[in-house]
Every structure is written in C-alpha cells, then in structure tokens.
Design a protein around this nucleic acid. Sequence first.
DNA 1: GGCGATCCGGAATTTTCGTTCTAATTTGCG
DNA 2: CGCAAATTAGAACGAAAATTCCGGATCGCC
Lengths: 276, 276
Amino acid sequence: MDAPRDFEALKQRLIEIEPLLPKRLRQTAAFALEHPDEIALGTASGVAQRAQVQASTLVRFAQSLGFAGFSELQGVFRSHLRTRWPDYSERLKALHESARTSGDPINLLFGFADSATQSIARLRETVRADVLASAIAILARADTIYLVGQRRSFSVTHYFAYALAQLGVHAVLVDNVGGLGADQAAGASSSDALIAVSFAPYSPVTVGMVEAARKRKTPLVVVTDSALSPLAGMADARFEIVESDFGAFRSLAATFCLAMTLAVGVAEKRGETRDQ
Amino acid sequence: MDAPRDFEALKQRLIEIEPLLPKRLRQTAAFALEHPDEIALGTASGVAQRAQVQASTLVRFAQSLGFAGFSELQGVFRSHLRTRWPDYSERLKALHESARTSGDPINLLFGFADSATQSIARLRETVRADVLASAIAILARADTIYLVGQRRSFSVTHYFAYALAQLGVHAVLVDNVGGLGADQAAGASSSDALIAVSFAPYSPVTVGMVEAARKRKTPLVVVTDSALSPLAGMADARFEIVESDFGAFRSLAATFCLAMTLAVGVAEKRGETRDQ
DNA sequence: GGCGATCCGGAATTTTCGTTCTAATTTGCG
DNA sequence: CGCAAATTAGAACGAAAATTCCGGATCGCC
C-alpha cells in the first residue's frame, strides 16, 4: 500500500483511518497524533510503553500504513521535526521585542505566553509554604467549601469547583445565577469554609458576600492581588498573586496553578486524615 | 569534568574550546554547531559520515566534553529539539511522589507550575500563524460570536466572553444554564461564528451544539486536544492544544493564552477594518 | 454457541548501533 | 632528524533495539 512520505499527509491519513482501526492500532494512532515528538525521538520500546502498547504493535501499525517497519514511520516524524529546528530561542527573543507593536497575531500569542510564564515564575517565588499549608488545613476541615468569584475571577472559581468535584470534595460554587449569590453563600457556617477570589476592581458582590460570611465566622481563604484589597484584612489565609500584564490583559495562569494546588492539596490532606 | 546539561551552555562551551581542539575534534565541534539537527536526529555513524569523521571520533569528542559517550551528548541536543524534554514525565512523577511522601503541598504547587510552563512552551511551537490568522478572520467578520464549552472548558469560554465584552466585541456565552444551551446556541447563523472548546472526554452537549451549528453553516473555530476529537473534522479553523498533565490534572494555561490571543486579535482586526 | 478470521502479547531472532581497543599516523619538541 | 606523546582510523565487540514469529485471546458472523 501507499506509505505517506510527508508528515502532513501521514497525519491526515491517520485521522481518516483511526476510527476504522482495531483497538490497539487505534490507540497507537491516537498517541502518534498527540505526541509526535515522542515518536520522532523515542525508541520503539519506549514509545510502546508510553502508549500502553506492545512494541510489536508499533511495527504492525507502521506496516499497516505501508511502511516497512517502525523505523521508516519514525523517519517521517523525524524529518518533520528537522524542518522545524532553526533556533527558536533567538526567534522568540526577536519576536518578543516587536510583539506589542506588530500587527501579526502570532506576536500576540507570544506576548501572552510570555506574561503567563512570568506570572508562574513569580508565583513560585512568592507563595509561602506556611500560608499554603494553613489554607489547605482550613479547607480540609470544612464540611463544605464555598467558592466565590465574579467577573474574571469566576473562571478560576468555576475550575476550582470542577477540580474539587473530580476529587470527591464537597463544594458549592456561588455562581450568582439569577442574582441568588447572597443566598447561595448564606449557607456557609462556621464549620464550612469560603474561598474568595477577587482582583481589582473588586466586585462589590464578592466583597459583600465575604463580609457576610465573616460575620457568620466562616473560615476564609482569600486570593487577591494586593494587601490593600478590601478582602485582605478579613482572611484567615491570604494569597497575594501578582500576575503579569500584556497590553490591557492580565494573565490568570498563576491563579489557576494556585487553585489546582489547593484543590489537590485539600483532597490529599483529607485522604491522609481518613487513613489515620 | 563538567558536562553541560543544557543546550545553550553546551553551545557556548563549544564555541569557546573549538579553536583549541585537535583537528578532527575541531571538525566535529564545528559540525555540531552548524548542524545540530543532524546530531539530534541522526545515528552516530550517520553523523560521522556527514561530518567526514570516524564514529569513534564522535565518542571521543563527547567524552572530552565530560559525557559518558555520544548518546549522552545527543540527549542534550534532543532535549532542546523536543518541546518537553526526555525525562519530563518521569521528573513530574518523581515530584508528585515527593509531594505525597513529604506531605508538603509546596511541591504540588511547583508541579503545577512546571506543567503549566511546559504547556505554554509547547503552545508557542505548535500554533501555526496561518491558522491563527484565519481563525481571527472568521471571528472578526462574525456579527455575533457564540462561545461553547462545558465542564472544565467552561472556564475558558467564560473568560473568553469576559475578554470580548471588555473589548467591546459582541459575544454570547452559551452557559447551558437551566438546560437552555441548545436554544442559546440556536441563534447562531451563517453570518455569525461559533467557538467550541472541548477536551477528552468530549462533552456530548458541546458536540451536539457544534453539529447543529454546522448544519446551519455557522463558521466554526474549534479548540481541542487532538485531531481525532469529534469536533476536529467540522472546524473551519482548528487548534490542537496539548496540555501537560500533573497527576490527574491537566493545565489550562496554554488554552487560556490562546483564548486571550484570539480575543485581542479579533478586536484589533475589527479596529483596523473600521479605520479603513 | 460454535467456528473462522482477525488481532494481540510476549519470547526469540536478527539487525543495527554505540563503544572499546589497538595499531598506525601525526604532531610537537629537543 | 628522531623520539615520545597525542591523536586518529578502522576493526571487533557487546549491548540494545527493531523485527519476526507463534500461541493464545478476542471479535464477528452464522
């Protein structure tokens, strides 16, 4: 049969035949499409392990596409990689300079990517282990975790709620649908906990809900952008996240990292406690 | 002796010592600097032939730099070529292990930060400028932009909607509140556009809405994780984003970067068009 | 539920590749 | 010019990787 000699043709072909293939071969095709660099650089047995497949399956797979063996298939992936070589780091540096001024949207992408990377780097340096530990402790001993965030912070609390649900931790996302936010949050008592995420300009709705929770002595974890935030003073544990700007937009990358950390941290802590 | 573990350091070192080396080794160093891709992708004997050198010379060369052999040297070149380096997932696994055993959640944070950074690095290298430009063109000429994403992708579409609103671009977030998703999306006509964000396991709700929009000839921009996604085939412009995992959780950092880029790109493009 | 065809896992085989070793050549120095 | 040290080429070795092959499992069809 025909053996596609260039990468794009091969990729297209894989997409076409993938649904028709038997189980392991389909698995292999999917892996190849998702991790082309593994195939290009790895060894057959290495790839096989990662793709949860037998090495011989890789050979059969390659042969079913018309190649003599795995190595020949690999050659296509390698030559594709080769064409993309010429040094990225220098290209990136040059692009970053012109990112803000040039009209090419790829430069926008590099700009946002850059600011996200910076945000994350800063996060690593500024988060204090003791604060993290105490926030997790607060959340781990809560009956229910209430999540509050409006406007752009809502993306974070929504994902937070998703992650907690996946981990089997009981949480309530205060989404303020139909203006019921205050009532949703009103369920939080002193045996629960509330996480509020808010950046300037601080949403009055969020501030209001946090104040109400504070009066009910609900333990509070706050994620905000400065110690001057109206939420900062009320928190039992507080994170100040400095995100980088690019143009008018602020990254959320660091905030997401923190959210995921808290979610998994809480789940693990609860696991430990249960085990004891 | 010291063996430079990262590509830049190695390159620098080669430049420094190259003039001091004996003939064949100098020849090898020069070749390595000029054809790094050969070294990364080729075999020792293949490289030797291209460099007009004996295979054993390559080994001696590598050893004189402090590596155990040619393969180790090659590893450095490969790491640089690869978007995520060879032992990356092992490293993350190790990190995750230590996070569990040490019980210190700061390691979780580092793990998530690491995988987010990797995701973004990968994004930079895989997004094609032409696809980006055509996606922006599609969105810029739409009357209304409809945003579809469920479960974890909803965080992205929500933020997308927020960004577009800030930029004064008319957009509808299909949030599926009260199960009205299909009806919300039904407003999309051929003069609008629809962005769908979906990762495995693909939400049937999202897939259904995209199929319906396709039938109405609404231009489609799809953000997904593989060319095999049920959404991929239907798209007018398609992005495949490979996010790194950490434990059970996948970063969303790259997807967010892309979303912000699209939002700002569309706003800029509309600005241009209006100005003309 | 039985039967044929297809598909898969794993050991055995063959090939390829990296490395080592040694003899020969070159280089540097007196 | 001659000797010693350093460097190199090429063959030989050993390890690792790709491929083949076969028994068993699975799937689809009657």
